[in-house]
Amino acid sequence: MAAFVLYLRLFQYGFRRHSTYLAAALAGAFTNTVFGVLRAYVLIALWEARPGLAGYTLAEAVTFCFLTQAFIGPMQVFGRGLSFGDRIRSGDIAFDLVRPAPLLAWSLAEDLGRAAYLTLARSLPPTIIGAALFTMVAPVSPWFPLSFALGVVVSFGWRYLVTLTSCWTTDDRGIHTLSALLTMFFSGMVLPLGLFPGWLRTVAEALPFAAMVQVPADVWLGAEPPLQALGFQLLWAVALMGLGALLTVAARRKVVVQGG
């Protein structure tokens, strides 16, 4: 019970922490919407030339575009690490390691709070404005909210691993750039994974990045059997967090707290 209250508080903190930076969220929402409109026109041109590409109708392609724009904030598609990355660099992580609570669990609670806030501030505006400007498809599956939430958890699991590598590599910019590139390309953010050729598509659809963007979008569009989609996401969520827990143990043993 006490643990539940703690994680609820951490969730609220994640929410509140991001809501302090209202201007940043609004600027993000604005950018996400404008890029959504630009991408929509590109996709419209593409789908008019090649109707039914990747198995999507034109309206589905436009919906896919605005959904993926809406996922940028909550799923951190541009690969931003977790806030404790700074604490590893500064050495403040020392405290997180002294605390009698698992780092994985409380950073998850905090990150879900962040995602909840960004869903309101950065996901709703592009979706609503997109729907007002273009013809979009209404969500088919009642499973979408769950798939969306699992997408956030998979994204967390991945970013937790990326952030934790700072314990081994004093400088983490390289791995963050790599993570941003992998996430953007293999999640379906740049192009629907259905457009990838042959083996690349098979690989991309099996990677965890697909569980962050492509899969929840397909659940909205009804393009994939929902239970299979959710199972895939759940599998990656469990796998990444299991790995995260193992890596935390290793980090604890290995960590060189920087400075002082």
């Binding site: 006490a2 209250v5 703690l6 508080r9 951490l10 903190y13 509140r16 922490r17 302090t20 500064s90 050495g91 403040d92 020392a94 405290f95 605390r99 009698p100 609570a101 400075g259 002082g260």
Partner: peptide, 21 residues
């Protein structure tokens, strides 16, 4: 040279989190 407190939270809220932790 370090802090255990939550940077963006009022001091009182950090204490509340410490209480729960």
């Amino acid at each position: 040279q370090r802090t255990t407190l939550w940077w963006d939270l009022p001091l009182r809220d950090s204490f509340e989190l410490v209480r729960l932790l």
